[in-house]
Design a protein around this nucleic acid. Structure first.
Lengths: 330, 330
DNA sequence: TTGTATGCGTTATCAG
DNA sequence: CTGATAACGCATACAA
């Protein structure tokens, strides 16, 4: 059984409050006699005292913990994001509680219902399905909240990338190499990023085929098989996971299409196909996210503006040579 | 302010204990008058009551939460693992609290110190540096614990892959294509998987160069640059992240080496270099992990055997044609 | 400078 | 069947 303040008090012939004051070590710790203080500290050390954070949290209504609810922790993009957010929060004295909704709306709801009663100080969420109403209904109004990656109309504290700009640079670059007819593989349309990317790209090209499914590698694989007959100039994927799936299935192709993808494709320079990605600035997203949350945690009623960050286009070698061949026709 | 049992009691002209009994809805709920029960349930619904899990946890000493402390959540391998463990635990009525040590021993220690006092029921940890002594010192003896991926001598509840077998199939396959002189890029030697893989591979081949560093992509990149002059037959990487880094840097190579890698390399069939991987069964690891934890959570004193699972070799197309050329010399 | 008393929201024990 | 009452471990207002 873990020792409590009570044990230390008994051990040192003091009272619980004295021990508490010494050990929480704030302003009140200074007002404690040097002798007793040392005695308490020593005893705490000897007994291996660790404050019961549950009790403390119940009493103070603070836990120095913020939860991050991501939509799919198996997706490396969110893994990187989580890692960066955790680091940033830690430097500000908060620890992160990472949760996963697995792109499942039902599960997301359960998490949103449960998390506030777990005594978190704040919440960052990558929403799957929830609207502003759903959120405000299930979440305490005073819970510090930041929406990440998938902005929700009416919620100001949010950080995301500029999908319009992302699609524009992606499409522009694709057009520069002569792409006209494309196939699109996209994630679920109820997710704003997938829907928006799909819409924006569809407005720019002649979409001769489309495949929609869960934002998993397998969806990409299936899509490619479906596209096999059609011979599109390019396949555009609404996220990295789908892109990976398409490329995975591409092995047999003798005349592989160009790949346009939102977010990064790993090792793409070595892949023998033209790839152009519109990549988000993950570290900046993470940092901005924390920056939006902190003032809320401190109770400052700063009206956070919904933050929308630019993306940049990254082409692999094969795509670059395509570009070169276009701009400098022999 | 969230409504409490007290509020509902007042609203329904009952007592806190009655409300509690109704709402926890176990055996004691049955022994409550139908009338008052409905009244209570209705009021709870109306007021939007949510049990305060912190208070409950303090009182019952149970939280139905287990923590998973991974060494690097940015590594997709752990992301997938975390996702699977979360699913499995959820089906058994537990929710997962995911934490990250970022391969940092100091941070790991802090987590290990803090987590138990956060009221978790159990802990799964991918250890970075901690020994059995370090663990037993900082963790309550009665905390259900499972070691994942990196077994610690003396701790029985652990699940990992058979490094010896993994190295054997990797080396065997490499030798079948005539590899003799290799370069090794490995993660920190204080991590048992990296150390062991390095040792085992080194015992089988003539290692003409070695590069050690953090298990990050960048280490792989740097390693390749360092190896540029030496022209090894193959480069062996002690995990997927390092492998990705090496491949990333491989672009300029006119005569690229074979890659041998522990864990999976995404999209490897399309990569124009021979790759052979020794991949672990992640779903099985995850499930086994939970299976080791559950009896501990239920207080059953089942002596868990340290579980060691086999891996399998997966070669990409290029590697397969190398094999073919060897076995069927024209 | 220190101790006493109270309460955070729940559950559990014990009466009635 | 139901209601007081006492913890769980900690922090703090109030006394001393």
């Amino acid at each position: 059984m873990q020792p409590t303040l009570h044990d230390i008090a008994r051990e040192t012939n003091t009272s619980v409050s004295t021990v508490s004051r010494v050990l929480t070590g704030g302003a009140s710790a200074a007002r404690i006699g040097q002798a007793t203080r040392l005695r308490v500290i020593d005893a705490a050390h000897r007994l291996g005292y660790r404050p019961n954070l549950v009790a403390r949290s119940l009493r103070t209504r603070r836990s120095n913990t913020v939860a991050l609810l991501v939509s799919d922790i198996a997706n490396p993009w969110f893994g990187q994001m989580a890692s960066l957010i955790e680091q940033s929060l830690r430097h500000h004295g908060y620890s992160l509680m990472l949760c996963n909704s697995g792109e499942d709306a039902q599960l997301e709801l359960e998490h949103l219902q449960l998390l506030p009663s777990k005594g978190i100080d704040g919440l960052i969420v990558v929403p799957v399905l929830c609207t502003k109403n759903a959120l405000t209904e299930v979440l305490p109004a005073d819970l510090p909240l930041v929406i990440l990656d998938r902005p929700i109309p009416g919620i100001l504290a949010s950080v995301s990338s500029d999908q319009e700009q992302a699609a524009t640079i992606l499409c522009d670059t694709l057009q520069r190499v002569g792409v006209e007819r494309i196939a699109v593989v996209c994630g679920p349309q109820h997710i704003v990023t997938h829907r928006r990317r799909n819409e924006l790209v569809s407005a720019r090209f002649d979409v001769i085929a489309r495949h929609e499914g869960p934002a998993q590698r397998d969806t990409g694989r299936q899509a490619y098989i479906k596209f096999l007959q059609i011979q599109p100039d390019a396949i555009v994927c609404t996220n990295n996971y789908l892109g990976q799936g398409v490329i995975d299935a591409l092995v047999e192709a003798d005349n592989p299409p160009t790949i346009g993808c939102f977010d990064e494709i790993a090792m793409m320079d070595l892949l023998p196909i033209p790839i152009i990605c519109s990549v988000q600035d993950v570290p900046l997203l993470a940092e901005s996210c924390v920056r939006q949350l902190l003032p809320q945690l401190k109770g400052e009623e700063i009206k956070a503006e919904a933050l929308v960050l630019p993306t940049r286009a990254v082409a692999n070698r094969h795509f670059q040579s395509l570009l070169l061949a276009r701009t400098q026709p022999a």
